[in-house]
């Protein structure tokens, strides 16, 4: 079936098989392999993407269900050739080890920061409770998100000063 949607800011149309999930279409048809498949049943969060600004598991959405929606994958998070502050903070805070959970972690925390620019540690923990990381122990990830929130608030203060 034919679907039309916005992918990382660009309008796209594609003829997609009805049995494909969003993750299959992203990886196979668009070759956006930053979105990872872990558990395939909505428990690990490695396949998290944003659908109309909200974090969803792309293994729990059929490609046909995103007709008309806006999808953001990890490939659309960077700003031009530069990493976003959130991505850079993941690196500087040691929040990336094996890297398999990282795209999902970044998209879950990006959805949080877009809705809530001043999250508490508890709110950060809740936002990534659906993303498993077996390397870092989460502490570095939470620090990276916190640091990003502080940076963007500092930028806002500088702009208004």
């Amino acid at each position: 079936m034919k679907i039309t949607f916005k992918l990382n800011g660009e309008n796209v149309s594609i003829e997609v098989e009805s049995y494909k999930r969003l993750i299959d279409m992203l990886r196979e048809d668009f070759e956006l392999t930053g979105t990872k498949e872990g558990c395939s049943i909505g428990e690990c969060g490695a396949c998290t993407v944003l659908m109309d600004g909200k974090a969803v598991n792309s293994c729990l959405v059929l490609a046909a269900q995103i007709d008309g929606a806006e999808i953001l994958t990890i490939e659309g998070v960077n700003q031009g050739n530069n990493l976003s502050d959130l991505q850079r903070n993941f690196l500087t805070h040691g929040a990336v080890q094996c890297g398999f959970c990282t795209p999902g972690m970044i998209l879950s925390s990006l959805a949080l920061l877009n809705e809530n620019p001043n999250p508490t540690v508890e709110e950060i923990e809740e936002s990534i409770a659906g993303n498993l990381c077996r390397c870092t122990g989460y502490k570095q990830i939470i620090e990276a998100v916190k640091a990003t929130a502080e940076m963007s608030n500092q930028k806002l203060r500088n702009q208004s000063a």
Partner: peptide
């Protein structure tokens, strides 16, 4: 229930 991702769907 579930996680943010599940509750959004």
């Amino acid at each position: 229930i579930g996680s943010v991702q599940i509750r959004n769907r």
